[in-house]
Nucleic acid binder design. Structure first.
Lengths: 215, 215
DNA sequence: CTACGGTGTTGCCCATGACTACATTCACGA
DNA sequence: TCGTGAATGTAGTCATGGGCAACACCGTAG
């Protein structure tokens, strides 16, 4: 079997595994993330990861106090990756807030369906101690949404009061849509369409004109 | 310690526990549901339940092939209870579809926040074999929503096309709102307000007064 | 009254998380 | 340069829990 699970600065002399892995924490997270995607959170066993990486069964403990700590770390890095993706989407989109909003929304639901188990992990923080770190990590993507709203207000695209509420509902919708699809309660093919409806409803509800109707 | 974990038709002669419990399956589900609420799904251990009920550690196996089967059963009964609650809410509400819709919505989010762990279980069916039973159980509450929509159409309260899409988004919103609150991402105090926003947006988007279309 | 199916029991194996004591290595300062 | 302590990894152990198998009890149908 190949034996070069080295990713760090350490260069193994030849064939011998160095006593110190050099990058174990990262290696654990990567392996865990793979398992998470393939077998869900329940499929993550510390001992298993250790075996896969080629360290002793107790080694992971040096980097994660317990299993839950590793799961929390996954959740946190999940929010970070999500944030990256969302911001990239904003940058790629047209400059107006509506376009950006749509881009963020569809990126979000795509991310959420492509990383179903990860999303579960991210949102199912059971108010346990240490869960604050996760909430903190979640602020990055949330703040992105706030920024977009502010932009919309500057552009006079979003004029209503209580935008925060509507925005929260939008976010919840997107998440809910992903949940329904991930659970097979709704066919995956509807992803784009539903996302669109959610954003449109938000823009309509938060938008400038409750204007007189015209048909 | 008291020793009367009897709930069934069996009447114990005196002080002796009968060889057969008489209602083990139900007792297991009830105990499991308690633990679910108190400690989450991870806090459910078959052996623990058996101990609590006073049967041997292998007894549960006669009623549930494995742990997952019990969790699935919980999810199914969860959908059933949810359905009951929703239908009760419809019956208690005014007869017009909008009122009913609002009643259903707020009942849903309340149920979802009061039974956070249960909801996780219900929606996180990992397309495993046997998950179909859960999807099937979920149809009851879903069909309720369809019925309300039909009623709205008859009443001409809901006139737009693609109502199904909007309705799905509404449902997703409600679920998402509950998820955000359960995860402490949003303060619980906002439950009612957000629920209201979600319903209003749906009614507005699906309703008769069309606001041009969005750009 | 007997045989059988349903239900519960005992005993076992094995995987896993968590803990402790010990080993190795690295980095930093005297 | 060396030595010393902090990081990091290892080995061994325990308790818990899921799952399986063989056996025991019991009600009921024939």
């Amino acid at each position: 079997m190949a034996r070069s699970p080295y990713a760090g600065t350490v260069t193994p002399s030849a064939d011998v595994r160095p006593y110190h892995h050099g990058n174990l924490r990262t290696a654990l997270l990567e392996a865990a993330e793979r398992r998470l995607a393939e077998h869900g959170a329940d499929g993550i066993a510390l001992r298993d990861l250790a075996r896969e990486i080629g360290v002793s069964h107790a080694a992971p403990r040096r980097h994660f106090a317990d299993r839950q700590a590793l799961l929390d770390a996954l959740a946190i890095s999940g929010f970070a990756r999500l944030d990256e993706r969302l911001r990239a989407a904003v940058d790629d989109a047209a400059a107006d807030s509506s376009s950006r909003m749509r881009a963020v929304a569809s990126t979000y639901t795509r991310f959420a369906t492509e990383n179903a188990s990860l999303l579960d992990l991210m949102y199912t923080s059971k108010h346990r101690p240490g869960g604050e770190a996760i909430l903190e990590a979640a602020e990055a993507p949330f703040s992105l949404l706030s920024d977009l709203i502010e932009q919309g207000q500057r552009e006079n695209t979003l004029t209503r009061e209580d935008l925060t509420g509507s925005a929260t509902v939008l976010f919840a919708s997107l998440h809910g849509i992903a949940t329904m699809i991930n659970g097979s309660f709704v066919p995956a093919a509807q992803l784009e369409g539903l996302t669109d409806i959610a954003v449109s409803q938000f823009l309509q509800a938060a938008g400038p004109a409750p204007v007189a109707d015209q048909r």
